[in-house]
Design a protein around this nucleic acid. Structure first.
Length: 584
RNA sequence: GCCGGCGUAGCUCAGUCUGGUAGAGCAGUCGAUUCGUAAUCGACAGGUCAAGGGUUCGAUUCCCUUCGCUGGCUCCA
């Protein structure tokens, strides 16, 4: 006897509701589009989807009609009935459903599990709710294209996404949360706060950093560069282009060509924009004879590179075609790999801690053994590098998941994943163990024994690309950067024109103390100036009127609305400088 | 790259379905106001309706192409 729905844990109940709603939606689509072919429809985070092949594209208006049919099914409160048939029977039942037939052929056992409600039957493992009336609160969200079985060489189907929660209140809360998330979308705040912009004439994925955004970026770069300097890195500069031959040697041309901009023909050579910085750094390593005493050598650079991302994926700052990576390559002996790896992880933790990044996950990105042509062909290398990373993570006692097929072409990676406000996951930090490129470039060091040895390269990016980190931080702080990162740290607001002279003196003192300040000397009322400063998310508003002028003071209002009242100017300067130093 | 959706002033959006060359708020400029913790008042200015082509007596509106933005899919820092 199955357990009644209400006795199940909440997680299981919602899972069943989402799964069942997908069936109900498929039924509605089949009714409205006779002859529709349906593929798969699983529950997902926050809801469900179902993929269909239809005679015409779905419009947002179709969603209304589908929604209505679904509600009728829910009101009818049909029971979900489970039964099992053999393959032959299943093939007969789904004779006009090619996707289902393909699924049936792919199942090992002969027992086919079916779920029915009303007139609708689906090939499905379950489990489901008991009756259609139990599916909870849902809303059809969007239509999208999706490849059959996630393979871009297979036909593209139409996917309908739905949101579903057990209670209406939860659905409403989720919708409100999404609305809030939209307000912190870095593309929107980037425009409102004048951080970056784009222009058609420059091109997709090629953002322009405005003065305020550039200030934040420069501070980030200075921050990480200083951390690296303390951690024993040497910073270098290298050009953004090189001969194509360089990338033929490295293997990029073979494995990464599709992501590179087309070749530029010069008189006698072919040049390319670099898609990665490693070859340049390797040639710096190779520029002189190295001794084991020199290792590890840690070469770092804000490395700007160019990738010909497919047009459908670029957008905002998080996916661009010109990007600057907080890059470094550590050349070390095999014995030093683990220690260097844990040093990098410590650096990541320290950087994240200061930037206020607390939610992230570790992903061990491995090659896909079933698809080895995507990767450097040296099996022995992979068999050595992958366990090395796994062991290092275990020794550091850090939890991680493993992702098959996510490795770089030259080696496995440890990726650190963050989620944006809309819940999309992206790689930020990455640490890669590379035994491949040292061979390609035939680099070496002289060991204690006087013989040549092959170094290992650790590729690592700590705070990702400036673009992606900026996108993350804008959303993370909702544009309200902590004082040390704020492009404008304080704005001085004179109440009337007769206070401008004193306000200018306040500005001078603040600037002399190294603070980034602005003067609002517009002929507006103080309230309007406060409102504008508030919308610009400036951390401190320093208001000066007769009383402050008299006392060599400023009235301090914080971005969160707190009014600290009049304080002596020198005291405010100390307070701000202190807050900048502690980066909190 | 693929499947949808969208592109009207710097920004947010009316108007497009039912073709007759555009309107608001905010921002901007100018003037008045000189004000005590989230929007002072008034005037002015601002648009080859993304670009190109087609249909039409006539296209912002209908059709096609390109570009850009956007939600997904695939791919990735």
């Amino acid at each position: 006897m199955p357990q009644p729905l209400h006795e199940l844990p909440q997680e299981d109940r919602v899972y069943r509701m989402r799964h069942s709603a997908a069936h109900i939606m498929a039924e509605a689509v089949l009714e409205l589009f006779p002859g529709a072919k349906f593929a798969i429809g699983p529950p997902i985070e926050h809801g469900f989807y179902y993929d269909f092949e239809l005679s015409r594209p779905l419009t947002p208006e179709d969603l209304g009609a589908i929604d209505e049919r679904m509600r009728a099914t829910i009101a009818a409160d049909h029971p979900f009935v489970h039964r099992e048939v053999d393959k032959e029977e299943a093939r007969r039942l789904f004779a006009d459903q090619p996707f289902k037939l393909e699924l049936i052929d792919g199942i090992e056992v002969d027992q086919m599990s079916l779920y029915e409600h009303g007139e609708f039957t689906d090939l499905c493992e379950g489990p489901h709710v008991e009756r259609t009336g139990q599916v909870g609160a849902f809303k059809l969200a969007s239509v999208a294209g999706a490849y059959w079985r996630g393979d871009e060489h297979k036909p593209m189907l139409q996917r309908i996404y739905g949101l579903l929660f057990e209670k209406k209140k939860e659905l409403k809360a989720h919708l409100a949360m999404m609305e809030e998330a939209e307000k912190r979308d870095h593309r929107r705040l980037g425009r409102e706060l004048e951080l970056f912009t784009t222009h058609e004439l420059i091109g997709a994925g090629l953002p322009l950093w405005l003065p305020k955004g550039a200030t934040v970026r420069r501070l980030l770069e200075e921050f990480i560069t200083e951390l690296e300097r303390q951690a024993g890195y040497s910073h270098v500069y290298t050009p953004h282009i090189a001969k194509k031959d360089l990338y033929e040697l490295s293997g990029h041309w073979d494995h990464f060509k599709d992501d590179m901009f087309p070749v530029m023909e010069l008189e006698h050579e072919e040049m390319v924009l670099r898609p990665m910085n490693c070859p340049h750094h390797i040639l710096i390593y190779a520029s002189k004879l190295r001794s084991y005493r020199d290792l590890p050598i840690r070469l770092a650079e804000m490395g700007t590179m160019y990738r010909n991302e497919r047009s459908g994926v670029v957008g905002g700052l998080s996916r661009v075609r010109a990007m600057t990576l907080n890059d470094a390559h550590i050349f070390c002996t095999p014995e030093q790999v683990k220690a260097e790896f844990s040093n990098v992880m410590r650096l990541v933790e320290e950087a994240y801690d200061t930037l206020g990044i607390t939610e992230y996950s570790y992903q061990l990105s491995l090659r896909d053994p079933a698809n080895t042509e995507k990767y450097a062909p040296d099996d022995a290398m992979w068999e050595m590098a992958e366990p090395m990373l796994r062991e290092a993570m275990t020794e550091l006692d850090l939890p991680f998941t493993e992702a098959i097929g996510e490795a770089a072409f030259y080696g496995p990676k440890l990726d650190i994943q963050l989620r944006d406000t809309m819940g999309r996951e992206e790689t930020f930090s990455t640490v890669q163990i590379d035994f491949h490129l040292p061979n390609q470039f035939d680099i070496s060091y002289i060991g204690e024994d006087g013989a040549e040895h092959r170094p290992v390269i650790i590729h690592r990016g700590v705070i990702s690309t400036m673009e992606r980190m900026m996108a993350y931080l804008i959303e993370h702080y909702a544009g309200a950067f902590p004082l040390w990162l704020a492009p404008v740290q304080a704005i001085v607001i004179p109440i009337a024109d007769r206070h401008i002279e004193y306000a200018q003196k306040v500005i001078d003192d603040l600037q002399a103390a190294g603070l980034r300040v602005e003067l609002d000397d517009r002929g507006e009322r103080m309230q309007a100036k406060i409102r504008d400063a508030q919308l610009q998310k400036i951390p401190y508003m320093l208001i000066v009127g007769d009383r402050e002028q008299e006392a060599d003071a400023v009235a301090v209002r914080q971005r969160d609305g707190a009014n600290l009242g009049a304080l002596p100017l020198f005291q405010v300067i100390d307070r701000l400088k202190d807050e900048v130093t502690t980066k909190c």
